[in-house]
Write a protein that binds this DNA or RNA. Sequence first.
DNA 1: CTGTTAGCGCTTTCAT
DNA 2: ATGAAAGCGCTAACAG
Lengths: 335, 335
Amino acid sequence: MPKKRVTLADVALRAGLSTTAASMILTGKQDTRLSADAHAKVHEAANALGYRPNVAARALRTDKTRSIALISDYVATTRFASGLIRGAIAAAEEARYVVLVLETGGDPNREMKAVQAALDRQVDGVIFAAMRAREVTVPDVSINVPVVMLNSKNQRYPLTILPDEYQGGRDAVRLLVEAGITEGIVLIGHNAEAEQGRFRSEMISKRLAGIRDAMSEAGASFVKELSAWDWEPDQGYVLTQSLLIHTKPRALLCLNDRLAFGAYQALGERGFSVPKDVAVVSFDNDEIASYLRPGLTTIALPHEEMGQAAVKLVLGRNPVSLVKIPMPIMRRGSV
Amino acid sequence: MPKKRVTLADVALRAGLSTTAASMILTGKQDTRLSADAHAKVHEAANALGYRPNVAARALRTDKTRSIALISDYVATTRFASGLIRGAIAAAEEARYVVLVLETGGDPNREMKAVQAALDRQVDGVIFAAMRAREVTVPDVSINVPVVMLNSKNQRYPLTILPDEYQGGRDAVRLLVEAGITEGIVLIGHNAEAEQGRFRSEMISKRLAGIRDAMSEAGASFVKELSAWDWEPDQGYVLTQSLLIHTKPRALLCLNDRLAFGAYQALGERGFSVPKDVAVVSFDNDEIASYLRPGLTTIALPHEEMGQAAVKLVLGRNPVSLVKIPMPIMRRGSV
DNA sequence: CTGTTAGCGCTTTCAT
DNA sequence: ATGAAAGCGCTAACAG
């Protein structure tokens, strides 16, 4: 049987000092000056015994557990989800925190239970994440620790992490312009999910605003705008297919990679070569973007950075309240 | 300011009983029979006050935190990762547990820290997961709670969750045979990552054993076997491309979806139609499988089920030690 | 500079 | 049938 846990008392005993002294030394208290000798003895004892503080006991006293909760609507759907989680975990690890991951499916009942589960465990902060940007309902219980909204938004909680969609939109266009393309550009997907909630479309509006501003600054305009009610490969395929009947575009600006994926298929079937005949740019940096041939040039959703930023924010390392994370440009072969 | 937490003492006070009574009633003790009246009063008080037990305090007493650690080598790479996590979270939630997710990158140092972080927080169990099946090193500290290996293996810890690769292999072949195809079948990818470690190849061997057994039972044999040193789309593309120069296959059995994805591209370029000219079956059920046209028929890696099974196992709901999770057949349009 | 003491909120003997 | 009291491991006043 594994021997009993070693406690502070054991350490103090071996060091020949009181638990108080041991506690102060091990937690690195500043104001008190215990002898250097005492320090040495305590550390020696702690190491020799393999002492590990009992976080539960400490939490009871200090109300700090060095753990934070990441409450997400969905966890498995996209790479985006795991990116957020990973970023959060990484930042937490660095600060010697741990993260509890909870999933709610967007169900208010599960949301409530998740918050309770987290609060019961005395987490030091909670992050509400949404896999697709949206206004998230937060259960109406008083949360007495910092709260940050990740890729989501809520009235009561101002601390927010969002991708910089406006700049991302600009960059997508810039890519095309830099390649000398200012004409024959088709926009695919613009009004997607317009019904899915104000905030979601608010984010998309920002992306579009960036796109339109950059377009007009370059003296360019879309030769055509195709709308899609969802942003799946099928849509991209069908839309591009019918586009190609009448038009010979020079570039496709797709609002996400899945649309672009479908577009590639249609382009391939009609014998158009990417990027020689038509260039393609899109958003997200899904896994598929790198699988396509040629690789798809895309404006990435900075999942990991967002996750990291969220925990930094929740741990109070950051003075500002709204953080916009830049969307990296992934240059591959499609433009 | 949020009012102070309500404690058991508050509940007891309001109910006009002792904390002892309140504790026993709220934790649902069996042996003691407090009056029905007492029960009612305590519950009423708890509800009215919005009482929530303090898990840290309880943990100090009982050594149970209702939380388990999921320590994984990688978290963000594939959908597989998030599937495992999601399954684990779901099963945990059902049992009113919470899961701490930790990542190690396969680095022994981080592995050690992760285990310590988990143990410090008195988790009730730990799950070691690997994103690609492999023998995982577990830090050499005594872990005094149940341990289960998820998609991985370790000498010291017998409790293991693995996909049923053998049966999956059989099923892949069966799909082809049922479609009347027993000739002109090409295997793509067989010796991949043979160097990546005994256990990984052990798993692949099982898949291959299933494939070969089913083939010979059907009186079929491969017309060709193409090996790939990794299983990325590029490989699938190149291999299939050169295959098509000399051969006109009837079916491609790819060892994962990414290979199949590359194969699709080569097939498309040479004007072969899937599934009319050549059928394709593969493994994993990656996101791309559903994006391809026609949809890729594939034998799924049962991530979520595995994650769920792992927490059930670690919570001791299960008497056996090695659990093989069936790999579901995803029938789409490629055969 | 160091030790004694008193809890944090809960469960659990042991009395009553 | 119910309550008093001890104590889980730790930290923070307060003495010495």
